[in-house]
Design a protein around this nucleic acid. Structure first.
Length: 404
DNA sequence: TCTGGGGTCCTAGGACCC
DNA sequence: TCTGGGGTCCTAGGACCC
C-alpha cells in the first residue's frame, strides 16, 4: 500500500517565531515585513546568519554566511540575537498541534516534522488534512509552514521546499519528471557544496541529469553515497517515519571562544566546563559512553581531533575529564585555539552496564557526587551549580533547554 | 570581507590476528 | 633472499543536514 507522508517545514523558522513572540509582547512592527535576520553574537565571534526574512533574502543574504556580509549587502538590515528558548517553545507547540493528526511523527529538526498519515486518514483526503494543518498553524500559532505531500519522506521533503511561503505541494511519482527533474542538482537533498562541482564536471547540472545516468556508474564513482543520491534523484526512498523517540548516538558540546586562546590552563578549564555539560546530558539520557573525543580548531580554521575507546563504560565527569584532558595534551601544539569541543560516542543504555564487583570505592564516590551535582543543577539551574569554577567559563557555556 | 553548534553517517589507512 | 589474503577493530577526517 502506498504510504501517505507529509513533511511540515516552518518558513524562516527562527525569524518567524521571534516575530510572533515580539508581537505577543506588544511590538508594533512585524520583523517578517522588513529586511531582518537572526544571528549569533558578533562580539563573541558567533556572527553568522541563522535565519532571514524574505525581504532580506531579496538582498542576496544567505543563511550561514557572516553577518558582516549581510550588512554589506543591506546596510539597514535589522539584526536580532538568537534566543533558543523561544525556538524550543514554538517547536513544541507545533509538535503538539501535529500530534492531533497522527502519533507517527518524526521531529526531523527543530523546525521540521515528517508525519505518516497512512493509517490516520479516517476517510479524509490527505490534501484536506494538509490544508487544515496549514490553516490552524497560522491561526492558532501565528506563523506559516510549507507542507510537502508524497508517498515517501524524500519526495515530501523535496515538495515542501518548492515555492514558499505558506504553500502546500504534492510530489507524486508521476510528477517527479515535471516538478523535480528540472531543478538544479544542488537542490537535491544530500547534495552539498563539495559534491556539486564534481557532479557538474560530469555534465550533471539538474536532478534529471543524475536520474538518467546509469546507477552503476554513479555507484562506482561515488560509492554508497552515489547509490543514495541516484535513488533520491529517481524519487526512491523506503525509509520509515521514525516516530519512536530514538536515543542519541553521540553527545557533544563545543564552543568558539571570544578570543583565540593559547594558555593551556585556560583551555583545560574550558574543557572541564564542556565535559561537565556533556556528561550531565549523558546521565540525563541514562546512558554510558565507550568513546570520548576532543576537537580543536586553530585560529586559521584547521580542525584536529583525537578520540579514544575506553575499555569500560562510564558517565563520570571526573573519569571522562581525565581522559579528554590527556587527549587535549597530545593534541595541543602551542597554537592559538579558536574552538574547543568535547564529545562522547558509542553510547549504551545504563541498564546494559555489567555490574562490576570491583568497582572501586573511588568510582562509587564519584558517581554519588555526580548525582548530587545533577540534582542541584536541576533544582537551581544549570549554571548556578558547577565545578568549572571561574565565572568567565560559566558565562560562555550555557546549557540550552532540552527539547521535549 | 569572516566564517555557529548540534548531530549522523561514511571512508581510508593502519594495526593486528589467523 | 622476498614474501598471501581476508577479516575486524580503531582512529582521524570529512560530507551532509538544519
Amino acid at each position: 500500500m502506498e504510504r501517505q507522508i507529509l513533511h511540515v517545514d516552518v518558513n524562516n523558522a527562527f525569524l518567524s517565531w521571534t516575530a510572533v513572540e515580539e508581537l505577543k509582547n506588544g511590538a508594533n512592527i512585524d520583523i517578517r515585513t522588513i529586511p531582518s535576520i537572526i544571528g549569533g553574537d558578533e562580539e563573541k565571534r558567533k556572527g553568522v546568519v541563522l535565519a532571514k526574512s524574505n525581504i532580506a533574502k531579496q538582498f542576496g543574504i544567505k543563511t550561514g554566511e557572516p553577518i558582516y556580509f549581510a550588512r554589506k549587502k543591506c546596510p539597514k538590515i535589522l539584526v536580532i540575537n538568537s534566543n533558543f528558548g523561544i525556538y524550543i517553545k514554538y517547536s513544541n507547540k507545533l509538535y503538539e498541534l501535529l500530534s492531533e493528526y497522527t502519533n507517527e511523527i518524526q521531529r526531523f529538526s527543530i523546525d521540521e516534522c515528517f508525519m505518516d498519515l497512512t493509517h490516520f486518514l479516517a476517510g479524509r483526503k490527505i490534501m484536506d488534512i494538509a490544508q487544515e494543518i496549514k490553516y490552524r498553524v497560522k491561526k492558532e500559532l501565528g506563523f506559516t509552514v510549507n507542507i510537502g505531500i508524497a508517498h515517501n519522506k524524500l519526495l515530501a521533503k523535496m515538495a515542501s521546499d518548492f515555492e514558499k511561503p505558506d504553500k502546500i505541494h504534492t510530489l507524486y511519482e508521476n510528477e517527479i519528471e515535471e516538478k523535480m527533474w528540472k531543478l538544479n542538482i544542488s537542490d537535491l537533498f544530500m547534495v552539498g557544496r563539495k559534491n556539486v562541482p564534481k557532479l557538474e564536471k560530469m555534465g550533471i547540472k539538474t536532478i534529471g541529469d543524475l536520474a538518467k545516468k546509469q546507477e552503476k556508474d554513479i555507484h562506482r564513482i561515488f560509492g554508497k553515497y552515489g547509490k543514495l543520491i541516484w535513488e533520491y534523484a529517481n524519487g526512491i526512498d523506503n525509509s520509515k517515519v521514525e516516530y519512536e523517540k530514538e536515543k542519541p548516538k553521540c553527545i557533544g558540546n563545543s564552543i568558539t571562544l571570544p578570543h583565540d586562546e593559547r594558555n593551556i590552563e585556560k583551555i583545560e578549564e574550558i574543557l572541564l566546563a564542556l565535559t561537565e555539560q556533556v556528561t550531565y546530558r549523558l546521565r540525563k539520557q541514562r546512558m554510558l559512553a565507550r568513546v570520548v573525543g576532543v576537537t580543536l580548531k586553530t585560529s586559521d580554521f584547521v580542525v584536529n581531533s583525537h578520540q579514544k575507546k575506553l575499555n569500560y563504560l562510564t558517565d563520570s565527569t571526573k573519569i571522562i575529564y581525565e581522559e579528554v584532558k590527556k587527549l587535549l595534551i597530545e593534541l595541543y601544539k602551542d597554537e592559538p585555539i579558536r574552538l574547543i569541543g568535547v564529545k562522547v560516542e558509542r553510547l549504551e543504555d545504563e541498564k546494559e552496564k555489567q555490574i562490576s564487583l570491583f568497582e572501586s570505592k573511588e568510582q562509587e564516590k564519584q558517581g554519588k557526587l555526580d548525582k548530587v551535582i545533577d540534582e542541584l543543577k536541576n533544582k537551581y539551574g544549570y549554571n548556578k551549580v558547577t565545578r568549572a569554577g571561574k565565572m568567565q567559563v560559566n558565562n560562555i557555556i550555557n546549557l540550552k533547554e532540552e527539547k521535549k
